[in-house]
Design a protein around this nucleic acid. Sequence first.
DNA 1: CTAAAGTGATTGTAACTGCAACCACTTTAC
DNA 2: GTAAAGTGGTTGCAGTTACAATCACTTTAG
Lengths: 153, 153
Amino acid sequence: MTANLSKVHNLAWRKFLTAHTVLIDQIEQDLAAADLPPLGWYDVLFALSQASEHKLRLHELAQAVLLSRSNITRLVDRLESKGLLQREQCSRDRRGAFAVITQAGFAMLERMWTVYESAITRDFACHLNVADVKLFIKILNKITSSSNSEPEN
Amino acid sequence: MTANLSKVHNLAWRKFLTAHTVLIDQIEQDLAAADLPPLGWYDVLFALSQASEHKLRLHELAQAVLLSRSNITRLVDRLESKGLLQREQCSRDRRGAFAVITQAGFAMLERMWTVYESAITRDFACHLNVADVKLFIKILNKITSSSNSEPEN
DNA sequence: CTAAAGTGATTGTAACTGCAACCACTTTAC
DNA sequence: GTAAAGTGGTTGCAGTTACAATCACTTTAG
């Protein structure tokens, strides 16, 4: 396969990467400054809060936050040791475990969201009007949906 | 400061994060499958290849690849130990060090680019026509330039 | 029912990251 | 010149990640 990547596409790619790094760094700094845990914790708590009965199997959780299985085990360990979630035996499959968000977990989720939301607003959302944002979503959809389709340029 | 983040903005943010993770994971897999080092190495080699005389002070390099200083020290260690670059004393400032890309470094840069380019093309560029990509860049520019401007939505 | 294959989660290990402390040198201010 | 402050880079350490191996259990095939 010959790649044939155009200048603009290349530029777009680099801007994409840079934007991501800069924004994430900023958010992590905001969280740290407020004595809050890193973004990964938020993702876990959020996924659990959205799940039915506020619990998920570990592998579902891993998929939800796009992390490897071994990784999720230890991330869950950390959150559990802080009381933000609990493990629960799965009765249908004795190998399996659920992670269930606790009250403290909900509270933490809320505190983190306060900081997270204002960071997103200030560094990202503020700069885009509704038309921009809809276009942005449309473009991102093109990129992520159907990982291998026809070229378009 | 009240955040007031709209639904669409929030959705856009999440899609942005997901797209990034998915694409990067894919690229890293492609590189690993070709027995090539991770993306960070490419960034370093690329920055050096673009620099005048193909060398940069370590702190310039750190800035170019958006890494912390301590981090760059060790990343440079690794590349140096593989012969992809060399450290060089700075004569103007005896504290300072340059990183200079070697022939082997250029060769590696090229091998990595082969894989990297086709991954970007296949997973990213393919899905966007020129109009899309120009819009995408425009939007990313709005986000990254001038970290704190007026709201627009 | 049993053997083989597959899946869910954990663990060991090695590599990588971030932070703070540090050493070496340079610049600034007196 | 000298002291104080600042800058460039490295190092120690603790926390995090990735990969492969492992254990426990479930599913499939005969």
